[in-house]
Amino acid sequence: MSPTAALPSPDLPTATPHWVEGGGIEVLPRIFEDAITLAVLRRPLPHDLLAGALAQVRAERPLSFAWRGKPGDDLRAALLQALHCPGISDSLVEDIVILAEAMACLFDTQDVGLRLRRLDAPMCPRFHCDQLPVRLVTTYLGPGSEWLPEHAVHRAGLGAPHPGKPAIVLADAVIHRLETGDVALFKGGGWIGNEGKGLVHRSPTLGSDQPRLLLTIDPA
């Protein structure tokens, strides 16, 4: 996870970090801590998984896969049918199934909602806060999602823009970005006890020839 600049602006107030990151799976359950709104599992992507991701963004037909149900064999079969170049994409399919099963286990739910999309333009270019309990986000190719530490957010600026509304970002130097491959849990405003404090984030800007392969998973 790399910030646009590693240190916050000296003009901004400091606060106890509300995010955690690490290279082990044990970092993700920390999202249940009251003070934490972002938990990030940092991981490099192996070559076979990257090959499957590349096959999805290089195909002529854009990929937009949506699925809801109990993760397992049904999800695996649906992915193998929907994805381009299924022979090359086995590792990608297995990674998605594992993440879906982990999400179901972590939040004690039978079903999850899942979307895998090739994006050629930012999906949500404006900083915002999701009004849902929690979402898993990982970018297989392209730049990762951008987010703001709480001390850099002016929440009065959130929502639809209009004249006179204040800027959301107090200092561009503290915009953080997830790395490709990172698995992140975003706590939203719909999490009980987290109302008005959901993680503020946005889609990254994409170059003219820089598609992005994004996976999101919600507990259903």
Rank of each mutant, 00 (worst) to 15 (best):
T109Y: 01
P204N: 03
G181Y: 08
D130T: 05
G24K: 04
G196M: 09
A171G: 10
L75D: 03
K165P: 13
V137E: 14
D172P: 09
I98T: 12
G142D: 11
F186V: 13
K187L: 07
I88R: 12
A53Y: 10
T216S: 09
C85S: 14
H47G: 00
H176V: 03
D73V: 09
L136Q: 07
R212N: 10
G207P: 04
H47Y: 00
M103P: 05
L106Q: 13
L158Y: 13
H154P: 00
F186D: 02
A167W: 04
C124L: 09
W147S: 07
V169N: 02
Q131G: 08
L158I: 11
D111A: 07
W19E: 01
V112S: 01
C105I: 08
E21S: 15
G142L: 11
G52L: 05
A59F: 08
A100V: 01
A55Q: 04
D73C: 00
R30L: 14
M103K: 01
D111Y: 01
P149W: 04
P166G: 10
I96T: 06
E146C: 15
R117M: 05
P44F: 11
Q56L: 01
T16D: 12
G159F: 12
G188K: 09
G159D: 14
R58Q: 14
G113Q: 09
L41W: 14
K197P: 00
E150R: 12
P46K: 04
